[in-house]
Design a protein around this nucleic acid. Structure first.
Lengths: 137, 137
DNA sequence: GTTTAATTCTACCTTTAAGTAGTAATTATA
DNA sequence: TATAATTACTACTTAAAGGTAGAATTAAAC
């Protein structure tokens, strides 16, 4: 019951970037070191974030990554969507395809409340919101 | 963000068995058919459930599986534990190892409430509780 | 122009989860 | 005792996630 490594890494990367307002361009080497994420894996993730338009990359010497959109407009759920990791409204905790009002799984009722809270946490937390929180890693 | 197939299957199997109070012994062929779970995979899961002592198996002709403990004494979290799928108190939603009061991740505060609800759902739901719920699958 | 520091691309390797196959062991029943 | 029905064991295959390697591309700086 947890997020994929890619999602976890991506959120940590972007939250860290959002926290470093001063230095507008950040490169992969530095991010990998500070956040203790394998460099090549981080680079792969960054390429995905660029493709999907969350950040832009500046190639070549003195290059790096910066946000394409305002951090207040990027929600955690947007990041999870990239790695197919967000919680869909119709997601059943026991994985049956037809779990709904008519025919529901044994945990259907108990699942509703935590599901909604998780969705709320992911959908209503922007990078700006969470950037200041916790330690800078 | 979901349980492993093994956990999902195991919960569905045991909830179904708990629901069939009358027929005390259930065999793998029937369970696999009714629950639409690959037979060999189900058999592998049942062997784990036997090893860990939740159910006992009767081998040979007319054999099958039945509960070893009362269904009111088996919690969903006991099942998740078998497949290392339950939510630990110290589990960080962003996967950092040292997420606590001193140094916490960017989502630490938001994660507390849904985490506790999930733990509550898993720890406080017994098979007896959930057996009657929903459809019989 | 050459060098250098950076991203990007393609392809691969490793680990884990998920699922399958075949056979041995067990036991009620005929 | 033979048979059929059942679980248990061992080993394999497949698919997906996680991670790595190396070369190509880009562009600033010298």
């Amino acid at each position: 019951m947890q997020l994929s490594n890619s999602s976890q890494y991506a959120i940590r990367i972007l939250a860290y970037m959002a926290d470093q307002k001063d230095s507008e361009l950040m490169n992969a080497t530095e991010l990998a070191e500070v956040l203790d994420i394998p460099y090549k894996f981080l680079a792969k993730i960054m390429t995905e974030l660029v493709k999907v338009g969350l950040v832009v990359s500046i190639r070549g010497r003195e290059g790096g990554y910066k946000f394409e959109k305002k951090t207040s407009e990027i929600m955690v759920s947007d990041i999870l969507d990239i790695f197919n990791d967000s919680i869909k409204d119709e997601q059943c905790v026991l994985g049956i395809g037809f779990c709904n009002g008519m025919c529901k799984c044994a945990l259907h009722d108990q699942w509703m409340e935590p599901k909604h809270l998780l969705q709320k946490m992911f959908r209503e937390s922007s990078l700006e919101d969470i950037a200041g929180r916790g330690c800078k890693i």
